[in-house]
């Protein structure tokens, strides 16, 4: 599902955020990307969601090499990835429904279908009935879940989450992680960047650890048991 080969990323200001990173994530896996702030977790997720391009090396997502992708194909590529941001990136002046519906609207989904799928997505994150509220009227945890609903509404085969529990108390964090676990159980690949080691241990998913832009721990390749079980 995701394959990075000897990927390095240097920003225009000269900072090298990733150095020679290689790893592989199989379909339906739940993988935690851990490390301190500034270790390169966000950069890695940006490379996968094609918000940035690698300086060296290759990034392959869902069978497509991002390096060869032309600008006009980027939108279609992004529609196959659900991205959850630490700061939600919700539209403050639009109700919950519109926020969640956005990926379907850009994909040209018929209105009736949109209605059905938005409700289904909101139901999955436990926010059914709050469609008409503005993000401001929700708690931080609820806003985060709206962001997750938006990421899953298009039924992407891959969900990428950057510190999705960064602003949440432990109970809410667990709740959000359980959601991700559920998605991975139905075949969705989930890659979660987090510095919350406690949660990672609790879930026992595969872990890849980054330090100063390099993989320093965890298992960069699928655990044999997991692969075998497929």
């Amino acid at each position: 599902m995701i394959q990075l080969e000897r990927v390095s990323k240097r920003y225009p200001n000269g900072r090298e955020a990733l150095t020679n990173v290689s790893f592989f994530v199989d379909r339906g896996e739940l993988v935690f990307l851990t490390g301190r702030s500034g270790a390169g977790k966000s950069t890695l997720l940006k490379l996968i969601a094609l918000l940035e391009r690698p300086t060296r090396g290759s990034v392959t997502v869902n069978g497509r090499s991002t390096g060869a992708l032309k600008a006009r194909h980027i939108p279609a590529f992004r529609r196959h990835i659900g991205v959850v941001f630490q700061d939600h990136k919700l539209l403050a002046d639009r109700p919950v429904f519109d926020n969640v519906a956005l990926p379907l609207v850009v994909a040209g989904t018929p209105l009736k279908e949109i209605d059905k799928r938005v409700r289904a997505a909101l139901d999955q994150v436990g926010l059914l009935g709050k469609e008409r509220l503005l993000p401001m009227e929700l708690s931080v945890g609820e806003q985060q879940r709206v962001g997750i609903a938006r990421a899953i509404v298009g039924k992407p085969p891959l969900i990428v989450a950057d510190e999705p529990t960064g602003n949440l108390d432990p109970d809410l964090s667990l709740e959000v992680m359980r959601l991700f676990k559920r998605f991975s159980e139905v075949g969705v690949t989930v890659l979660v960047a987090t510095h919350d080691l406690h949660i990672v241990r609790e879930f026992g998913g595969r872990e890849i650890t980054l330090t100063s832009g390099q993989i320093t721990g965890g298992s960069p390749d699928p655990l044999p048991s997991l692969v075998a079980s497929r």
Binding site: R72, K89, L102, G154
Partner: peptide
């Protein structure tokens, strides 16, 4: 600007 950014983020094309 924010809305445009988010729209592009979830796969909105330039034409959209």
């Amino acid at each position: 600007r924010d809305e445009i950014e988010v729209t592009k983020l979830v796969g909105g094309s330039n034409a959209f």
